[in-house]
């Protein structure tokens, strides 16, 4: 069970949130000239690291806003949560 700090509401129980998968995936800028491989990459191919991972969460049973988190996929430790317009923090060394 995770304790997640919503950037607006503060620390809340994991059951209030929904995970939204990897963060910082950019939609192809020029859809008309993007080929199939690049679309496939954008839609389906994902980083799946064993270690620090930037991911999206939504505070579904709270303020209902999206934010990002830097979390470790083995220890589940959350290093930071940050708004989508903030600069992503670097993983701890």
């Amino acid at each position: 069970m995770l304790l997640i700090r919503c950037p607006w509401c503060g620390p809340r129980d994991e059951t209030e949130f929904r995970n939204g998968g990897p963060a910082h995936i950019v939609r192809p800028r020029e859809p008309t000239t993007t080929d199939e491989a690049a679309w496939g990459e954008y839609l389906f191919i994902r980083d799946n690291p064993k270690g620090w991972f930037r991911e999206r969460w939504v505070h579904a049973a709270g303020c209902r806003r999206w934010f990002n988190a830097l979390r470790h996929t083995v220890s589940h430790e959350i290093e930071a949560t940050y708004r989508v317009d903030e600069t992503p923090p670097e993983p701890p060394v």
Partner: peptide, 9 residues
């Protein structure tokens, strides 16, 4: 959430 730990919530 993504995880490589063999445990869940």
């Amino acid at each position: 959430f993504n995880s490589y730990a063999q445990r869940g919530s």
